[in-house]
Amino acid sequence: MARAGLASYDRGMSALDDPDAGALHRFRWAWYALLAATVVQAVGVWRWFVVLGETPLLEWLHSPPDVGGWGIAEGTAQAIQLAVGWSALAAAAWCLWRPSWAPAVLLAAVQMAIAWAMTATDEGFPVAASWLPAAARRAFPWLTHAARMAAPLAVAWLAWGGAGTAGAPCQDAAMIRNAPWGLRCAPAPRFQAGIEQLLRWALAITFAAHGVEALQTNPVFVDLLLDSHRRWLDIDLPEARATELLTAIGVMDLLVAALCVSTRWRWVLWWMAAWGLITAWSRVAANGWFWWHDAVVRAPHVGVPAAIAWLAPRADTLANRVESPADT
C-alpha cells in the first residue's frame, strides 16, 4: 500500500519539479500546521508539567522499582519534571524563533517519555485484550500518542533535511528561493512523500487506538459526552445513548484510520482534523477551562491530518499526469 502510494506520488509530484506554485503553497501550509501543532502541544506540556505538576512522568520517576519506577526521591523527581516542562516551553520558543531539528527532537522525546511513563506506571487506558500479555496491554499509550510523537518528529525531519533529501544541502536555487519560513529550502517530492507516510501511519494508529477505546466504552469518553451535552446543549443525555454514540464513534474512528492509509481521499483527512479538534475541545467543553492543557496537548490531532491533506498530491494532478500522452 505504501509502495503504491509512493509510486503515485512520484508520478504526481514530478509536476512539482517544474515550479508548481500551488504545490509549494500547500507545502507551506503543511509545514506551518506541523509547526503550530508542535508548539501548541509543547505549551500544554509546560502547563501540565510546571503549573499543575502531576504527570505520569513524576509518577514513573518517584515510584519504587518494584512497580516499574525509578525510585527517585519525590523532590528530585519534581525537579526533573519541572526541568522537562520548562525545556518543552523553551524548545517551543526555539522552534518559533528558528525551527531546528534539535528542539523538535526534544519535544518528540518528551512525548515518548510520557508514553513510556504511562506504560511503566500502568496509567493508560486499560484495554481489554486478555489474549495479550499484561505488559503489552500497558503499552497502549504508545498507540494513542502516535500522532503527538509524529508531529515534532516530522518537524525535526523537515528541519534537518530541509533540502531535497534528508541531510543533503540545498543545491537548487529555485528550491532555496521557494523555501517556506523556517526551512532552508523546499523539499523534494520523495522527501515529502516520506514525511507524508510517517504522518499517515501515526495518525491512523492514533485514530484506531482511540477507536478501540471507544468500542470498549472508555468511561472517560462517556463522561465527556454526557458533560459536554449537559453544559453546551442543555441536554441530559442518557448514559445508554452516550454508550451507543460512543460505539458509532469507535466504528467511525476505525474506518477513517483505515481510509487514511488506504486511500488518498482528502476529505477523510479534513474530517479527521475536524474530529481531532472536536475531541480535543471536548476536554474543555466537558470539564471547564481549568483543563485547557488537556485540549492543547492534542493539537497534533488537528495539525497532523491538516498537514497530510496539504502535503498529499492533488488527485486531479495525478489523473492528468496518468492520462497525459506524454506519460504513455
Binding site: 468511561p219 454526557l226 448514559e239 452516550a242
Partner: peptide, 8 residues
C-alpha cells in the same frame, strides 16, 4: 471513580 461518573 473508574467507571462512568456523570451518568447512572
Amino acid at each position: 471513580t473508574e467507571t462512568v461518573v456523570a451518568g447512572k
